[in-house]
Design a protein around this nucleic acid. Structure first.
Lengths: 222, 222
DNA sequence: ATTAAGTTGCACGGTGGTGTGCAAGTTAGT
DNA sequence: ACTAACTTGCACACCACCGTGCAACTTAAT
């Protein structure tokens, strides 16, 4: 084993490929756990092209690996959401949806893991920014008369979140294109919020149009 | 052990309390698996007030118990859906939602189990009637111009199903009243279908009004 | 070329679940 | 009261997984 975790400034600092492997494990965990949140570390190791044993050279336990995965996912989502602000709650909500779409994989991992275990708190923390943003939009939208008035605000916020997750699943299932998925997330979010599908479409079409915000994909191999 | 499964017409037919216990096990399984689809048989036995060992007097294996549970749930749902027909796709969809609401528990068990394992087919079969009914309404609604035209029909059907599940979850989480839950399922289903929330409300309010269809609750202790 | 970092395979102990056999008990039905 | 149906508890074998120790190997960096 190595001094991966305890990389004190002694003899030699670390090794390049070790970090790569660490990333490979995290990437593999993303893939595997997305398909089955209860998959074994063996499955993760195989997917990463490593041995189960060597995972323990990078993570002390299964839960630690999970936690790292969640924290990273949360960070990406927060980053994607950071620039999203709009005075119009409808637009705000649509933009949140679009931002989520760019992080589908992350969102789905989190959503999968959200169900069981002692990771709940970690998951909750990771998703907190999304929740806050959605709630803000919902409150404003209801107040402005844009959104439905027949559902209490907290419930509506949760319903929109759940609907967004469902759309994300459906988008992956149907292998929608980037553009279609993006549009669908926004459209269904607004629909659940109470808009007619035509109104939702109008909101989306009037968007500042920054759609193809993907520089080939980040260098981040996740 | 006993001749519970192989009740040939020999010496003595069966025993009353044995059947009761069988039902108790199924009821317990419903409760336990609803909370955690991967719970152990020990948990089920405890909930049923029996020993783990005796479960095997009624069911050959865990999967067999699960299967029985799913088949029953499917049967109840089918029954609840049997009388639901309306020429107006909007009303039809709303009524399907209302019917589902009366069977929340069953639906949620099925939805929970729908994820993993070799039970998928069983689950799919159990839910087939719902799927068919929803698809029928969706196709008609799109054709009539009531529902959204920006999502392919099969996807829209699945999205509505998923949204309904989410509403069911939310309703249980928020401990909505019978009436509120019933209304919410219908309203959100129609919203996802494309109606504005006011239109959805109008459809619901114009319903033939058979709401309190609960004679104290069936004698079925599930 | 040397050396420490990292990987691998194997063996192990521990945990928690399933499914079964059996002997002893309890209880419903005759 | 008798008997078969049923339940129970305990024991067991089996399996899948986690986490660890260790010795042998491969390889990045000096």
């Amino acid at each position: 084993m190595g001094c991966v975790t305890t990389a004190l400034r002694t003899a030699r600092p670390a090794r390049k490929d070790a970090l790569e492997n660490r990333e490979a494990i995290l990437a593999a965990a993303g893939v595997v756990f997305r398909a089955d949140p209860e998959a074994s570390l063996d499955a993760v190791a195989t997917q990463a092209g490593l041995s189960r044993r060597s995972i323990y050279g990078h993570f002390a336990s299964r839960d630690e690996l999970l936690a790292e995965l969640l924290v990273r996912g949360g960070a990406r989502i927060s980053a994607a959401l950071a620039g999203v602000h709009d005075p119009d709650p409808r637009i705000h909500l649509a933009l949140v949806g679009a931002a989520l779409w760019t992080e589908v994989q992350q969102v789905r991992v989190l959503a999968q893991l959200a169900i069981h275990g002692p990771l709940e708190k970690t998951v909750a923390d990771a998703l907190a920014p999304v929740r806050a943003s959605v709630r803000h939009a919902v409150a404003g939208g209801i107040a402005a008369g844009f959104f439905r008035a027949d559902v209490p605000e907290p419930s509506l916020a949760r319903l929109i979140e759940d609907a967004a997750i469902a759309v994300l699943d459906e988008a992956v299932r149907s292998e929608l294109s980037e553009a279609e998925g993006r549009r669908l997330v926004m459209a269904v979010g607004l629909s659940v919020a109470g808009l007619s599908w035509q109104d939702a479409a109008a909101v989306i079409d009037a968007l500042p149009a920054d759609p193809p915000q993907r520089p080939t994909n980040d260098k981040d191999p996740r």
